[in-house]
Nucleic acid binder design. Structure first.
Lengths: 147, 147
DNA sequence: TACTAAATGAAAAAGGTTTTCAGTTAGCAC
DNA sequence: GTGCTAACTGAAAACCTTTTTCATTTAGTA
């Protein structure tokens, strides 16, 4: 299942939040981008359609969307700023192009056995994990070879 | 192999950097902590022994240590600030207690097959990955149950 | 002991994120 | 539709973290 604008609005209403034009625009920007975006990038995009919008509103909306689990944070290799991307609702991970920042989601991480072993060896009760692969996508590889 | 103070100092000298009392103290603080520390936390600890030291010096030293690959960054679940921890020199990952922030390193992540499959399916040339497990260590679980 | 490149600390600058507050608005009751 | 209220917005200010600048000090070497 992929989140649509409608579903996200429904979830907001469910949570007691209001649907404002600003929020609609922000949600749209996130939904229609295939890259992860920083709050500043989202602001920039949203301003094209909604010039007066403040960066504060972006932050506030992102906070709510994250709280409701509708978006998720990213930790791109090296750089530790928080990025955001729309997410399919299942457990998933990211494969990130280090050059153009394209993100591909994948779900089958197969870490169950490793998790069980670690849990046994360390007596940790493991509740989750973060897995990201970084590399170069085909386009960027070709670009590099050509140049 | 685990980095000792001597080895780190050797690596610094190799890199053309000087060994100052401030750097010694910072390196010591990192080596002797089993938790990941923020620059501010390192500053606080280092100041006990070296009151006049500036936060800037921490940042500068951390930058060098990271450049030389002597420390590594962490991305603890949820929180996206950059943390640092001494590291065994091999490829490794972290298992982090979400309560007390204890970190356990592990090296055998076994992601080769997944990496090959992803690479094939997506035409990415994968160069690395980030894997972290989060959970509760035994102590914190017992604490929670008792309380 | 003297020299020089590198390092330090203080202060200022530069980001990014959060808080505050007065004014506006979505969603609901009537 | 009208009015009400809690929620939302934008601007400014406050906060924090990180980086830059610069004058002074120091490690390492000759």
């Amino acid at each position: 299942m992929v989140y649509t604008e409608k579903r996200i609005e429904h979830a907001l209403r469910q949570g007691g939040y209001k649907i404002t034009p600003q929020r609609r625009t922000i949600i749209n920007a996130i939904i229609h981008s295939h890259e992860h975006l920083t709050p500043a990038e989202i602001h920039e995009r949203v301003r094209r359609e909604h010039p007066g919008i403040g960066l504060v509103t972006i932050y506030r909306t992102l906070e709510i969307l994250a709280e409701l689990g509708l978006i998720c944070e990213m930790h791109a290799g090296g750089n530790c700023r928080s990025y955001l991307i729309r997410r399919p609702s299942e457990h998933h991970h990211h494969l990130i192009c280090s050059d153009c920042a394209t993100v591909i989601d994948f779900t089958d991480c197969d870490l169950g056995e490793l998790e069980r072993r670690l849990s046994k060896e360390t007596s940790f009760e493991i509740s989750g994990h973060l897995l990201e692969f970084v590399g170069l996508c085909r386009k960027c590889r070709e670009k590099t070879m050509a140049g």
